[in-house]
Simulated scan of single mutants.
Amino acid sequence: MTDSETAEQGDTARLRPGPATAQRRRRSASMADVARLAGVSAQTVSRVSNGAPGVVDATRQQVLAAMKELGYRPNSAARALKSGRFHTIGVILFNISTTGNTRTLEAIATSAAAEGYAITLLPVAAATQDSVRGAFTRMGELAVDGIIMLMEAHLLDASTVTLPPRALAVVADSNAGDRYRVVDTDQVGGAQAAVQHLLQLGHDTVWHVAGPADSYSAERRVEAWRSALQSRRREVPEPLRGDWTADSGYRAGLQLAEEPDCTAVFVANDQMALGLLRALHEHGLRVPEDISVVGFDDLPEAGSFLPPLTTVHQDFSEVGRRCVEELLAQIRNDQEATGTTLVPTRLVTRASTAPPRSTR
């Protein structure tokens, strides 16, 4: 046998697992196996598995190395039976296609993962009482520790729609603060800032393209817009209704283009504002020279509209993060909570607003 063959056989021997290790790998490794290999107690392995504090870093690394060598995976089902926690958050979502819901859901998933939690998503296909009741019932059957609801439609007002008993929950975009913990954007403050901005520029009044009537956020923006005009004794035009899409904003823009007294418009979201800008352009009206436009959301693309859109920034990521934070506080304290947390908004001024022509 050559020297190189001898060396190769030696390397192979070193890489080949010993009989005890090979036997452990033929069956699922247990916590006791990890403890023996790491030279620690099973309790220490359990603490490392659960991410508990109080384990010396060197010991933790030793246990993690043993887990990796043995291919050990903590038994989450057994751990849940012991602790009563599944480390999973249920999310009931009414409309996954809207920008706000998509970005809030992304933040919820990211924040939950950072805390060691997974999410179970349950979309609600239609805005009916039966579908929402079914979603609540189904979520009560799943292995979740708490529920976050992204439900903008007027469904939680009905006394027939309730969560399973003792369910820990947070609701985003709702006025259910007397029944559940609510996290929401400051819709009123944002809408008022938009109206005040246009009035301060010198516009006599502000028209409004509202979202759908069954939306909490849309209704709060309508009420804030109307209140801001009434408090300054300004005329309150009849609001136009859209459905959050650019197409509905375009249709509203076609109507407003025929209103000779319209010099300023507050649109309930940026997507509808985009459609409105197109309609005004097609009618030969310039923004902001002829009509000023303010949106709501501050989409990442809002600064690339033509012209760049003045809009109200709402922090969807912060809403999602706060939802997880509020829910985990309930889970860890095993106690339901009520009340509302408002996430601030701010007006982002760009090129779509200016003083009316009569004042220039």
Results as ranks from 00 to 15, higher is better:
L155R: 09
V124M: 05
T102N: 06
V132S: 06
G134I: 00
A125E: 11
D130V: 04
A109M: 13
T110H: 11
A125I: 08
G146R: 11
T99P: 00
Q129K: 12
D157P: 08
E106Y: 09
P123I: 04
I147A: 03
E141P: 00
M139Y: 08
A127T: 14
Y117D: 02
I108Q: 07
A127Y: 09
A118E: 12
S159M: 03
N101I: 01
E106I: 00
T160S: 15
V132D: 06
Q129W: 03
A112Q: 02
R138F: 09
T102D: 02
P123H: 03
G100L: 08
T137C: 00
S131V: 01
A118K: 09
V124A: 02
A158I: 04
S131E: 15
G140W: 08
V132A: 02
S97G: 07
N101E: 11
S111N: 07
N95G: 02
Q129Y: 07
L155N: 01
V161Y: 05
T98D: 06
G100H: 12
T110Q: 10
E115H: 11
T128Q: 10
V144F: 06
H154R: 14
N95D: 15
V144K: 05
V161T: 12
L142K: 07
T137S: 12
G100A: 10
M149S: 14
Y117L: 04
G134T: 06
V161C: 08
S131P: 01
E152C: 00
E141S: 13
T120H: 13
T160D: 13
M149L: 15
T160H: 06
Q129R: 14
S97P: 01
L121I: 08
T98W: 06
T110Y: 02
E141T: 13
G134W: 08
V132L: 15
I148K: 00
F136N: 11
V144N: 06
S97F: 10
S111A: 14
L155T: 09
R138W: 10
T99E: 10
Q129L: 13
H154G: 03
P123F: 05
T99R: 11
A135K: 06
V161D: 07
V144Y: 02
S111C: 05
M151N: 12
L150K: 01
E152H: 10
A114P: 04
G140M: 05
V144L: 06
V132K: 05
F136I: 03
I147W: 03
T98C: 01
E141Q: 15
G116S: 06
N101R: 00
A107W: 04
I108S: 04
L150D: 01
G140R: 06
G134L: 07
R138E: 15
D145S: 07
